[in-house]
Design a protein around this nucleic acid. Structure first.
Lengths: 209, 209
DNA sequence: ACCTTACCTACTGTTTCGTAACTTACGTAG
DNA sequence: CTACGTAAGTTACGAAACAGTAGGTAAGGT
């Protein structure tokens, strides 16, 4: 027993910190916030509990750092996707970008999709994806204003689109097919043209750029 | 202290059972599954723990009953909404029906939107709304087949639409305005016609790059 | 009077966060 | 090369919250 005893290494503070963040992302992703104990976190990092307390002050501190990084990451992806091109291209790029993120960082996405631990009163807002939607909403509000639409309804559309793509993303992480490019294409078509023009054939996405 | 002592009443088994279900719905809604203890549940019902164990076998049993009821409820609403009318009317009715459910049963909706406790491995499926989407997907698959579309992509659309409306529903429970009818109208417009034809103004997005 | 049904108090064992007090590896000055 | 200070790490524990249960009590219909 104690297989790690040979491999146990002494790391520098920064290294240990990063390692804990990575380990934490994995554990939080698969067990949720409340479901993970600092004991398990420490064990998986091959370290004892007080180390974690020293670096992050506790479970919540580690979680906060992980969540913050992940939100910044995904917001950056979306921001880049909608930064230029025709409106329709932006929609397509955002959907594709997000789904590729889901594919490449399933753990991070799982964390964002799970309930947030912050049981602040009044707000039933469970998922962290609301923060993402909030930020998308600001972009939308600006675009709506510029286009002469009612700015007040922008959040509706922002949340609708974020909900659409994230929910599909969650489903996709389970079934893992068809490929994200195809899924993104369908979603973008739905978002842009509506149910009214369903694509009659599965893959009309021969147009690559 | 112990304000309930005077009001403590002796109920029949069926009455107590129903009371526990209602209390449980409220508590689970605001604290999530893992966040609620049997002790709190019992206390809020003005009863002691063993009563709950007697009726439901434990926390999980009570939760299962509540969830089952709520899912049946919401699926019935959606099924009724899409039972007849033109496709477009069905979309509109489904969105409106669901949002009215959210408005009238915020606690039940909160439970469905929160993470499910079933930490079965392999599946990252956190929310119970996936079950709803699953069932919507079956309806879609049939409709797709009949319309000559590829049946395999039906789940994409089903999840997209369910995600859209549920995510907006979650946001709406926090802000509580504009009225659901208006929100439903926007969502239905988006789902049916796409971003391309945003309501309230003819499309000035001719500015392509 | 009695017995069924609803209900309670009080406990066990476990799991958890968080901390106090002690130990070991490692670079470097002399 | 060796003594030593500091950063990295450990063991062991306290306190609280929790699920679930054993065994006893009282209400109320018949």
């Amino acid at each position: 027993m104690d297989v790690n005893v040979a491999r146990r290494k002494r790391l520098s503070a920064a290294e240990r910190r990063n390692q804990l963040i990575e380990v934490g992302r994995g554990v939080f992703a698969e067990r949720g916030y409340e479901g993970t104990s600092v004991e398990v976190l420490a064990e998986r990092a091959g370290v004892s509990k007080p180390i974690l307390y020293e670096h992050f002050g506790g479970k919540e501190g580690l979680y906060a750092v992980i969540v913050d990084r992940e939100i910044e990451h995904v917001v950056a992806i979306i921001a880049a996707a909608i930064s230029d091109g025709s409106p329709r291209e932006r929609v397509e790029a955002a959907a594709l970008g997000f789904l590729q993120y889901v594919e490449q960082h399933p753990e991070g996405f799982a964390i964002l999709a799970h309930d947030a631990p912050t049981a602040r009163p009044g707000s039933t807002m469970s998922s962290l994806l609301n923060d993402v939607a909030e930020r998308v909403g600001q972009v939308f509000a600006a675009a709506f204003k510029e286009a002469g639409y009612n700015r007040k309804v922008a959040p509706i559309y922002a949340h609708a689109l974020v909900g659409m793509v994230t929910f599909v993303g969650q489903w996709w992480t389970d079934v893992r097919k068809p490929p994200v490019e195809q899924v993104a294409s369908h979603i973008a078509a739905l978002a842009w043209m509506g149910l009214r023009h369903l694509p009659t054939r599965p893959d009309p996405i021969a147009r690559k750029r």
